[in-house]
Amino acid sequence: MTEQLAPMPADWRRALAVVAHPDDMEYGAAAAVATWTGGGREVAYLLATRGEAGIDTVPPAEAAPLREREQLAGAAEVGVSVVEFLDHRDGVIEYGPALRRDIAAAIRRHRPELVITLNHHDTWGGTAWNTPDHRAVGRAAIDAAADAGNRWIFPELADQGIEPWDGVRWVAVAASPRPTHAVDVTEGRERALRSLLEHRGYIEALTDEDPEAYARAFLDRGTEATAPAFGGRPAVAFELFAR
């Protein structure tokens, strides 16, 4: 990351984060959320799945409620009290009109100025391949930001009383290999650490390392890697699309 990153816009009050799985926000972007909510902004979370296919040693029927509880607790640590689940199938989310409609409906209800999502590109950079769920939800979130404002796309939503909202000004993509902007998360890092640690069931199935050591190392790597492109400050980077 050699290009200098611009500061994220600050003239907004409401954001909606749209991701595929429990823990997607906690692996980095939650530090920005903690910073924003700490400054009085409102952030809500929308998850396409309950993460039921995410733990190899736990059957989906048991994993879903576990990961839902972990997500609610993790969100609370960074000041997010509204968390919604769409119940698309974990691991096989399909990009298409159904997913776009579900996200557009949530955007219309929450009326955010900023939509946040996770990397929609094919890779994390280089040859580190991204997952189908991340790609599908990221792309659908970007598209749904426009869909939400057009009453003739998914007109059935208006028939249900979910009126168009054309107030999304930006879509910010976390963990993109093509970042353009960043947020100083000096104030939000410890809350983000606690947020990620709420996913203890997931982390303990993922690694034999001590959960706190694992989580702190992961988050520090990300914020410190961004720092040289953002005035030396620990930061979370985003690829920002303006509308």
Rank of each mutant, 00 (worst) to 15 (best):
E94F: 08
E68W: 00
R111H: 06
I55G: 04
V115T: 09
T186W: 04
A20S: 00
L197K: 07
D56C: 09
D56L: 14
M8C: 13
E163S: 13
Y27K: 03
L86G: 08
V18Q: 02
T123E: 07
R89L: 13
A29K: 00
T49G: 08
S176G: 12
G222R: 07
G167A: 12
H120S: 02
H110I: 09
P60L: 05
A48D: 00
P7E: 09
P22M: 13
I93E: 01
N130Y: 05
A44R: 04
Y45E: 03
L72R: 13
N130A: 09
Y45L: 08
R69S: 09
T123P: 00
R243S: 02
P112E: 04
A53V: 08
D24G: 13
R139A: 06
V183D: 00
A20I: 01
L114H: 11
T123N: 09
A6N: 08
I153M: 07
V173K: 03
P60G: 14
R111Y: 00
M25L: 11
D143N: 06
R69T: 07
R50C: 05
W129V: 15
M25Y: 05
T49W: 05
Q4E: 11
R14L: 02
V236D: 00
R111V: 11
V236L: 04
A144F: 05
V168Q: 03
P65S: 15
D23F: 11
V58S: 11
T186V: 07
L206V: 07
A174K: 00
E68P: 02
R178L: 11
A32V: 10
R69E: 07
R139H: 04
A136F: 02
A106R: 01
E3M: 08
V43Y: 01
Q160F: 08
R13F: 11
E77Y: 05
G149S: 12
